[in-house]
């Protein structure tokens, strides 16, 4: 509860900072909505030709984009340092968070807001609304899917980037992980074979963000919500554990860079 108040205060500060550059913020938001729409055109053309692939229709793709974009956008807008954690660690910028009396990981993540995330959120919700799954029950399932999606996005990238406590600069690795999870979350897993599916459910948990939750919103089964909640829980637990054991290794930084 106390931590929730604190999050609200942080988000307010982020918003105040964004308002210092109002027009840049608005440009980012609009650009991202247009950008997402342009990507989606591919599927419009695709389904125009094939109608349905393994039971997936254009409507389902809208749903999948809706969930993944909203989840991504929420993570980016409210927990923006989840894409830049490795830099924060290697540049010694955790000092600030470590000298304040709040949970470090939560504090870092929520201290940055990526403006374009708001564009993703608006696009994602819009995409969900026109997908045709807009019922009371569908909204609830959409909300659950988005929530677990946010957890998994953030946890996965936190795990990868926490490696920089041990390895030094892992910004390159993080970038790859980021684009992999983002790209694959936007494909229906029906398109992949069994072993790829396995990878996408575990090592790069993209399917847990996109297609499995989409299945769950399409039709209620017990399997998919269990899968995504268990996935979200395990990833979250791993992220927190790995980050905190990394903190023991944290070296801060006095602008010392050893180039070899």
């Amino acid at each position: 509860m106390k931590n929730f108040k604190f999050l609200i205060a942080l988000w307010k500060a982020n918003l105040q900072a964004a308002m210092e550059f109002r027009s840049a913020f608005l440009t980012q938001v609009i650009f991202m909505m247009v950008n997402n729409g342009a990507y989606f055109m591919f599927w419009v053309l695709y389904f125009d030709k094939f109608k349905a692939v393994q039971g997936w229709t254009l409507q389902d793709m809208m749903l999948l984009y809706g969930i993944a974009a909203t989840a991504w956008g929420t993570a980016a807008y409210f927990f923006g340092h989840f894409t830049t954690l490795a830099e924060v660690i290697t540049q010694g910028r955790l000092d600030y968070y470590l000298s304040l009396p709040k949970p470090v990981l939560l504090h870092v993540l929520a201290s940055r807001s990526i403006g374009s995330g708001m564009g993703d959120i608006i696009y994602g919700i819009g995409s969900f609304i026109i997908s045709g799954y807009l019922t009371a029950d569908g909204v609830l399932r959409f909300a659950i899917a988005v929530f677990t999606g946010v957890c998994i996005f953030i946890s996965f990238l936190t795990i990868i980037q926490s490696l920089s406590f041990w390895l030094g600069n892992t910004v390159a690795l993080s970038q790859i992980a980021l684009s992999a999870v983002l790209t694959f979350s936007l494909y229906p897993s029906a398109l992949f074979n069994a072993s790829t599916k396995f990878v996408l459910l575990t090592i790069i948990p993209a399917a847990l963000i996109g297609s499995v939750p989409a299945e769950f919103v399409r039709a209620f089964t017990w399997q998919s919500p269990l899968q995504i909640s268990a996935g979200a829980f395990v990833f979250l637990l791993l992220a927190v554990t790995i980050f905190h054991s990394g903190l023991r290794k944290y070296e801060s930084g006095s602008a010392i860079q050893v180039e070899v």
Binding site: D95, L98, S99, R248, Y250
Partner: peptide, 8 residues
């Protein structure tokens, strides 16, 4: 930094 808990 050790006295503030930043470094172990």
């Amino acid at each position: 930094k050790m006295l503030t808990g930043i470094l172990h």
